[in-house]
Write a protein that binds this DNA or RNA. Structure first.
Lengths: 148, 148
DNA sequence: GTAAGACTTAAACTTCACTTTAAGTCAAGC
DNA sequence: GCTTGACTTAAAGTGAAGTTTAAGTCTTAC
């Protein structure tokens, strides 16, 4: 249908997202709809790009809260245009880089741990979330955890 | 204290995890404790390594359910020894590799999207979760999403 | 004009991995 | 022996991102 007004079902199908999610996004203030005479939601097709934006941001690892924040930086709260999109996606890149690095560090540690079979609470990078291992205390002790 | 029996507070402090989490792990069947005469939990020091194991597995991205599964492959349900640890961590490596590759693909797409400012629902890798973009349908259409 | 199917709402439910709460018991130092 | 702080339980709460449900209303195709 070549109407300007899309029903929630239309948007759901074309965006590949459940109708319930669209209602949820609306409740969360991420998207907007008008109503038909009968009270049903009618969407402008711009909402499709907006949903694409939201999903892209989610893939990058942003929460809906952060996405709402990003949307707030857009002039007039409108759908991002090329320049906005460029700005926002550039700002995401360091975040992505950081997450990749973290994963790679974890993988490298996994490799070295395969060799040593250690599993130390204090120093094994696999059990240390922040990679700040051995920041303080009685020096590195790999291998067995408890020998207090 | 150099006792063989650790209280829940001892374990919590040494493992760097909340006591409530230890009770939760026990309820979930991931760890085990004995009881003192007065009914308080008393832990063998092996539980420290077990907790280290659980946290390492979580960092790799496994759910507690999957970790329980991994623990079930251990003989007698005991704390993993070097050989077990090697086997398990080797089995995690492909998972980690895959997650890293995914992130890298996403980053590369982000870069190309910065250039084009597209944000297409159907083909933009940023909004497509499975990287199966353009699997079917009317050929690639980058740029604007809706021109039906 | 009517039947089918798409839509409406608020509220409750889901999953994951815990944490918090409340009311009470145990252990240890002085 | 008593106070303090660590411990016990079950049940409810948290937060993220929605989904499901129930009961009812709209829209569309025939």
């Amino acid at each position: 249908m070549r109407t300007l007004e899309l029903s929630i079902g239309d948007v759901a199908e074309r965006a590949g997202i459940a109708a319930s999610a669209l209602r949820f996004y609306e409740k969360e203030g991420l998207i907007h709809s008008n109503r038909s005479d009968g009270g049903q939601r009618r969407y402008h097709r711009d909402v499709l790009r907006l949903v694409a934006f939201i999903r892209a941001a989610q893939r990058v690892g942003l929460t809906l809260d952060e996405i709402r924040g990003a949307l707030a930086t857009l002039p007039e709260g409108h759908v991002p245009h090329a320049a906005d999109w460029t700005r926002l996606s550039k700002s995401w890149r360091p975040l992505l880089d950081q997450r990749i690095e973290e994963m790679q560090r974890l993988r490298d540690r996994l490799d070295s741990c395969i060799g040593c079979g250690c599993l130390s609470l204090k120093t094994c990078a696999l059990s240390n979330p922040n990679d700040i291992a051995a920041e303080d205390g009685p020096g590195a002790r790999w291998l067995i955890v408890a020998e207090d």
